[in-house]
Design a protein around this nucleic acid. Sequence first.
DNA 1: CTAAATGCAAACTCTTTGCAGGTAC
DNA 2: GTACCTGCAAAGAGTTTGCATTTAG
Lengths: 153, 153
Amino acid sequence: MSCEQGLFRSLRKKGLRLTSQRKRILSALHELDRLATAEEIFQSVRRDSPSMDISTVYRTLELLREFQVVTCVQGNDGQHRYELAHHSTPHVHMVCRACGRVFEVAIESLQPFIACAREQHGFEVDVHALSIEGICHACCAQMRSGTIISHRK
Amino acid sequence: MSCEQGLFRSLRKKGLRLTSQRKRILSALHELDRLATAEEIFQSVRRDSPSMDISTVYRTLELLREFQVVTCVQGNDGQHRYELAHHSTPHVHMVCRACGRVFEVAIESLQPFIACAREQHGFEVDVHALSIEGICHACCAQMRSGTIISHRK
DNA sequence: CTAAATGCAAACTCTTTGCAGGTAC
DNA sequence: GTACCTGCAAAGAGTTTGCATTTAG
């Protein structure tokens, strides 16, 4: 996998190693191909490597984040969620507060805001870390039809 | 305080009570008048009421959130931060990943994005819950001048 | 009065850390 | 061989919960 080669070279530059655990976590991220919690990634890896520890998953995800191989956002439930950085075109995540589903939106319509933040405050928005809460179409409809949806939790 | 009267009526409708603890937490939120963690609110309240427990603070903040008296966002450090809902004009929070400082931006420049999310996905963005990560002006400058800033953590 | 709320202690979840043994290069 | 890395166990932060007691209305 070319992605693995690239990571290997990056690691080597800093005297770090491409271990079998790191390879497996990278594979799991490719397989999942979506925002996933450390626990989900751990479970996925565990099916093949039952001896893997969750602390290794955390350590590896932090490493991959430093090398910008994965991006990380905060879910609405306090957990971090990770995905491969080159997963697709630049996008932000919208998390439904009612059902927890995640939607992706291209960043074009955010450009006015990004420009505004930069011009008015000199603030550089990190688009990859953006996680936006709200209510999705389906849950909106359900709420209007009278069904009570639990408010988070 | 008129805010207290309003809350009292809302509570009464559901058979709930306006206790002295709830009043004190409401005061603390007014005094702080900014995004604050449960711990900060707890410490603030504790100065006057040393017997208050942090679990009461959590329970009350959850209650105030249900009644839409406070809004809640996730900080970049995994903590929830709360502030009074009518704190000021509608705004979003931008959190600097390097120094942790919080900046407020009016939501106007986000309107294209909010409209886009609604039209394309039927997704209703909750502006109040928005917390946007990035790098602030000062930290940008420091980084360019060569100072190494720790990457989160 | 009595249902709701509090304080206390203990549990729980997610994440990080110290360390002895294992492994990439 | 020697740093780096891992699994294990234990700690740590933030938050939640069960229960006996207190209190608002």
